[in-house]
Design a protein around this nucleic acid. Structure first.
Length: 881
RNA sequence: GGAGGCAUAGCUCAGCUGGUUAGAGCGCAUGCUUCACACGCAUGAGGUCACAGGUUCGAGUCCUGUUGUCUCCACCA
């Protein structure tokens, strides 16, 4: 049982072995078990193409900590892992490889062969992120690992699509969509990121038909779209342009006559008050176009080049076309002026290229009816956001939803289950692949080539992973899940859509709590990103400082929802903490007898220090459990950290030394049993945060059960609350601290021992604490006095509220300095007392404040009075010298 | 344009539903080869809790406003 332990903890030698032990032990696996309450978390599936980054480390740490906590509390804890096929990201990656290695495009291969390549790629690299998550100590049920394109998930997607189609909630329509010319696909609103960019406002002159020399001047930020203009709009209330309404102007370069219409949409204040209308390339223009029956002429193709409707500009890239058009208009004298103009440009969240609004036939989900229930559910508290402020975020999004564009012009993804009939034009949408048109029976049908938005399948994750649409036992038992942990950046993408889907298809919200965390930033507060090259690799940190240290870094000193900066120094600090714990354990183990047991001694054998440490442990257990229940992990771990380092290591271990190195076998046995017991308990409390080192140590101390990972979470025990002893111990500790302070002030090294005389109203406490004073206050002899000493010649006095301590230090004592110090202490205490007395003499305070508060203040005042009295006596005695 | 966060020690941040003489880590200063640990021990310095009002017996904590800063959403061509 007792192992030789190295002086320094070496996580690299421990972590893999421990993780294997857990996996082999099957501790991560959960099965339906009606005798236990389930606690379920579904992991936000990382991209299969992904490389582990700090965001994952944050995500995984929080989830694993919660799961381990609940597992120890006796819940049937299930953490469902998996990966996301990540449509665009993955396809781009494979295309890139194809291009660089073989010089081929996906079109050279064709759809089927290309998809084979992506699957190959997935099989080759898809497990990498899983292996990396294991390095984080993630206690997921790997047996249940899912993939958003596996058979079950595909079935779920199909079912959802078809059923929503049947309900009329999915439709196909020609709408303005966000189009990424680089990725060559449509995007949803959520996938567009707006970036403030400097640009220009070009003022263009369109000649009025039939009125030689008269123009309308329109202002635009995207002049190239003028090729598709089919009208000019002014505000109906604009006095400047009343006579123009109904007239026509001639679109330059294209020579098309287009109408001038009046529409409220036009802002009188902005630009010239005349707006060119390009219904095919602007969502607002599209709306206006509908109202006024304007033609829709699309002039850009899918890759952002001007198409054949753009006349001589055909084939030019949108930005080249812009230059050419401006130059041509200028030479025609139709460029009025160019203004600088800052504006928000939509960019693709994947490739960051400018998004082009383009009219296009796409598939949409009608969100309004679905959102209603999702709003109600959160309003009613069926799902709560932690911290609560993110509810507003969610609501804001939900209440302003446009229909969700779900089709993507990609190959990698769930292909839309709709077949078009070449004969009758009917759309067949079915759960089984169609072979004939369901309307006319024709076999001339062709499947829609597009795939679904990746988030369409992620939205089903909480139930698709549990077997839906089959009515499985798992689904029945584990759904709804409990907590969803994720960053605030994907509330709209993912969380909101899961809530919508859960309510629609399962009739129950998918989880009761959404725990939101912030972003991990670099030490300067910048986002970690590939382009900046400021990312820190979690695996490197694990290699250097150990997984436990990294995990601690993620949870300490930050509160839910707030961004955190990543400091390598904090990893170092946490590694030091691990080492501290390691060495405390070494101390305990070195002192273990062969017959050592992990059992609390009988209460009668407990000494003051034992009761003190146990009582404080008891409080710790209650508080930490409460903090954990409220998801205040940062607060919880701080308390555990402080208890271990301060209470257990710096004090309790020191307090046991006089017993461990003495001869009394009984007392020694008691001390060692308490040491082991408390260590065992704190290892349990710490385990969810630092799973590896705690398991490693726990395995080496006397224990019952197979593994700490499944050990019982500590509970508060009323019979271990020793309030009186706690206070008594604190008095002695105060004396020790005061003495150390005095000695340091006087530059007396610890090696210079001196006698110590103690005079205290409650001498018994100090009698019991004699050994502590001797060892920790560097005394060679401790004498408890029954009366104050007469002569203070050569004495240093140390005063605490309940004791006066005298140290004979001979010539080292400078009476003047002593007096000055006492004066200073007196002054600050008198001030403090005055403030307390002012408070206590305040009628309103005494009558209105809760009794406990008033009593606490009274107690404080009494203690301060005592201290002042003591100091005054010392002062008097000193003055005699 | 709308919404929200943050502003506390030199740095990075905790501080739950108002009651501590305001805390931690790192950094800093001084001392220590104390038989678990120098990835350590001991002691200490350092804060008018952004500013101005208000509510309250009592405000770092609640309310209002101001300033600075960051973020999200919407988007005017």
């Amino acid at each position: 049982m007792i192992r030789e332990l190295p002086k320094v903890y070496e996580p690299q030698k421990v972590e893999n072995r421990i993780y294997e032990m857990w996996e082999k032990g099957g501790y991560f696996h959960a099965e339906k078990d009606v005798s236990k309450k389930p606690f379920t978390i579904v992991m936000p599936p990382p991209n299969v193409t992904g490389q582990l980054h700090m965001g994952h480390a944050m995500d995984a740490t929080l989830q694993d900590t919660l799961i381990r906590f609940k597992r120890m509390q006796g819940y049937n804890a299930l953490w469902v892992p998996g990966t996301d096929h990540a449509g665009i990201a993955t396809q781009i990656k494979v295309e890139e490889e194809l291009r660089t290695k073989e010089g081929l495009s996906r079109h050279d291969l064709g759809r089927e062969k290309f998809l084979d390549r992506v699957w190959d790629w997935k099989h080759k690299y898809g497990n990498r992120i899983v292996e990396q998550q294991k390095k984080l100590g993630a206690s997921c049920d790997w047996d249940r690992a899912r993939f958003t394109m596996d058979e079950g998930c595909s079935k779920a997607v199909r079912e959802v699509f078809v059923s929503l189609y049947e309900k009329g909630l999915i439709y196909k329509g020609s709408r303005i969509v966000n189009w990424c010319p680089h990725c060559v696909t449509a995007l949803s609103d959520a996938e567009v990121e707006y970036v403030d960019k400097p640009g220009n406002l070009w003022h263009l002159k369109y000649p009025i038909v039939g009125e030689e020399g008269r123009y309308v001047i329109v202002a635009t930020t995207r002049p190239e779209t003028m090729l598709g203009d089919t009208g000019v709009a002014v505000n109906p209330n604009d006095p400047r342009y009343q006579d123009l309404i109904g007239k026509k102007c001639l679109l330059p370069l294209v020579d098309r006559e287009i109408p001038i219409v009046a529409d409220e949409y036009v802002d009188l204040e902005f630009g010239t008050g005349c707006v060119k209308m390009t219904p095919a390339h602007d969502p607002n223009d599209f709306e206006v176009g509908l109202r006024h029956n304007l033609e829709t002429i699309r002039v850009l193709d899918d890759s952002g080049k001007v198409n054949e409707l753009g006349g001589k500009y055909c084939g030019m890239d949108r930005y080249d076309a812009r230059k050419a058009i401006i130059a041509d208009l200028d030479s025609l004298g139709l460029l009025e002026k160019i203004e600088e103009h800052q504006h928000n440009v939509g960019t693709c969240y994947r490739c960051s290229n400018d998004v082009e609004p383009i009219i296009s036939a796409q598939w949409f989900v009608k969100m309004k009816p679905l959102a209603e229930e999702a709003i109600r559910s959160v309003k009613d508290g069926e799902t709560k956001f932690v911290p609560e402020r993110f509810t507003k975020n969610y609501m804001n999004w939900m209440e302003n939803l446009h229909d969700w564009c779900i089709s993507r012009q990609l190959w990698w993804g769930h292909q839309i289950p709709v077949w078009y009939c070449a004969d009758c034009g009917h759309m067949t949408c079915t759960r089984e692949d169609a072979t004939v048109c369901e309307k006319c029976g024709s076999t001339h049908i062709e499947r829609d080539p597009d795939v679904l938005d990746t988030w369409f399948s992620s939205a089903l994750w909480p139930f698709s992973t549990l077997g839906w649409p089959e009515a499985t036992d798992d689904l029945d038992y584990f759904y709804p899940t409990d907590v969803l942990v994720t960053g605030y950046d994907i509330i709209t993408f993912w969380v909101s859509r899961m809530i919508v889907s859960g309510l629609e298809h399962m009739k129950k919200a998918p989880f009761h709590t959404v725990l939101i965390h912030g972003l991990v930033r670099d030490d300067k507060g910048r986002k970690m990103s590939k382009s900046l090259g400021n990312g820190i690799d979690p695996l490197e940190m694990i290699e250097k400082f150990g997984c436990d240290a990294l995990r601690m870094n993620m949870v300490t000193g930050n509160s839910p929802g707030n961004d955190m900066r990543f400091y390598v120094e904090r990893c170092e600090a946490m590694r030091n903490f691990a080492n501290k714990l390691w060495n405390a354990s070494r101390y305990v183990m070195m002192n273990l007898e062969e017959r050592a047991v992990n059992k609390l001694p009988e209460t009668k054998d407990l000494e003051i220090a034992d009761k003190w440490v146990l009582s404080k442990l008891n409080t710790l257990i209650a508080e930490v459990t409460e903090n954990m229940d409220k998801y205040e992990l940062g607060v919880a771990i701080q308390k555990i950290y402080d208890y271990i380092w301060d209470t257990y290591c710096d004090w309790y271990i020191e307090l046991t030394k006089s017993r461990l190195y003495a001869d009394d076998a009984q007392r020694k046995q008691t001390a060692i049993q308490v040491l082991v017991y408390v260590l065992d308990q704190v290892l349990r409390l710490l385990h969810p945060f630092m799973p590896f080192i705690t398991e490693e140590i726990w395995q080496s101390i006397p224990h019952e059960g197979d593994a700490l990972i499944v050990a019982q979470w500590p509970v508060y025990q009323r019979e271990l609350a020793f309030t009186a002893e706690e206070n008594q111990m604190e008095s002695v500790m105060n004396a020790i601290r005061a003495i150390r302070n005095r000695r340091t002030e006087m530059n007396v090294p610890p090696s210079k021992k001196a006698a110590l005389y103690v005079y205290a109203s409650n001498a018994q406490i100090f009698k019991e604490g004699e050994g502590f004073l001797q060892r920790l206050a560097y005394a060679d002899v401790v004498s408890i006095l029954s009366a104050e000493p007469e002569n203070l010649e050569g004495m240093v006095t140390v005063t605490t509220p309940d004791a006066k301590l005298y140290i004979p230090l001979g010539q080292l004592v400078d009476v003047e300095k002593e007096l000055a110090r006492i004066e200073k202490e007196l002054e600050s205490n008198r001030k403090f007392l005055a403030s307390l007395e002012a408070k206590l003499s305040n009628e309103k305070f005494v009558s209105r404040a809760p009794e406990a508060v008033v009593n606490a203040e009274r107690e404080k005042a009494q203690k301060t009075r005592d201290l002042i009295a003591q100091l005054e006596q010392s002062e008097k005695a000193m003055r005699k010298l």
